[in-house]
Design a protein around this nucleic acid. Structure first.
Length: 298
DNA sequence: GTTGAGCGTT
């Protein structure tokens, strides 16, 4: 079968778009997703039964029904059509709206001038939004500032804005961070990234992307080089990533294990006791890396 | 009475 185009639409009544097939007559889900971001499959109305039918999808490859795409208009499936998953995502979403989303937290302010007072801090940060609380940490005996403090805002949006930039306060550059967190202004959100364990060396980034896009929009795939039997997949939506954690999935006939890519302090020498070049080079490599093992692999 | 990466007396 040579190159052909099949008609795909967002909805049965929408204007279809032509999507190219592969040489073997299949269509890559990624080709569909290129025009319909977030697409996870196709369906069509069976002319005989008038029922909607799903198109066979195997590891990112869509197969023509009866080996012939015919002249039908195919309709895009999105992850939200999965009712079971949707309930989970709704629940997670509700939790997030109630707690995480608009819940502000104290921010640590590092690098304050010794002379900066709490009133100075309040005056400065109020230019970004309403301030709930400011603190300057001081030596109890002398009353001298320790050069850092805390601030808390009413609005989460204000907090986001403040953390994302540096601050000139009384003549010094200061940083605002989440306490006990090395997370910088543009650190990738951990919760959108999953750890894919038990990968084989022949799995490519394209294949992983095509596979995982059935669950939601994939924004990044990372495979460490040289081969290390795991990879990272980042979704546009963190709830999709969270929903996959703990699952064993079959990719190219191989069972891979999904877990959270949360940072964790691990003993890397236990994981690779005989790493070539010795433990020092291994440690250096890991120190430079933003990628870490999930707790289930420790 | 000094200092300049960090992590919070109550």
């Amino acid at each position: 079968m040579s190159e052909l185009y099949i008609r795909v639409a967002e909805d049965e009544n929408e204007e279809p778009m032509e999507i190219p097939s592969e040489d073997d007559g299949t269509i890559l889900l990624s080709s569909v997703a290129a025009q319909f971001p977030g697409a996870c499959g196709l369906r069509y109305r069976n002319p005989e039964s008038q029922c909607m039918r799903g198109v066979r999808l195997v590891e990112g490859v869509l197969h023509a029904p009866e080996n012939d795409w015919g002249n039908l208009v195919y309709v895009v499936n999105y992850p939200k059509d999965n009712k079971r998953k949707m309930e989970e995502i709704d629940a997670a979403s509700a939790v997030k709206v109630k707690r995480g989303f608009q819940k502000t937290s104290d921010l640590i302010v590092l690098g304050l001038p010794w002379k900066t007072s709490e009133q100075d801090l309040k005056d400065y940060f109020t230019t970004f939004g309403e301030v709930i609380m400011v603190q300057v940490k001081r030596d109890l005996k002398t009353g001298n500032s320790k050069g850092f403090g805390f601030v808390r805002f009413t609005e989460y949006e204000t907090q986001t804005k403040v953390v994302a930039q540096r601050h000139m306060i009384d003549g010094r550059w200061c940083d605002c961070k989440l306490p006990n967190s090395k997370a910088g202004p543009d650190e990738p959100m951990r919760s959108r990234k999953i750890f894919v364990g038990r990968c084989t060396e022949d799995m490519t980034t394209d294949e992983l992307r095509q596979y995982f896009m059935q669950y939601g929009e994939v924004t990044d795939v990372f495979i460490p080089k040289p081969f290390r039997a795991f990879s990272f997949v980042t979704f546009a939506d963190d709830q999709v990533a969270q929903a996959l954690c703990g699952e064993d999935l079959i990719i190219k006939g191989i069972s891979v294990h999904i877990s959270n890519a949360e940072p964790k302090h691990n003993n890397i020498h236990q994981l690779f006791p005989n790493f070539p070049g010795g433990s020092a080079s291994l440690a250096a490599m890991f120190d430079r890396s933003q990628y870490q093992f999930p707790s289930s692999h420790v």
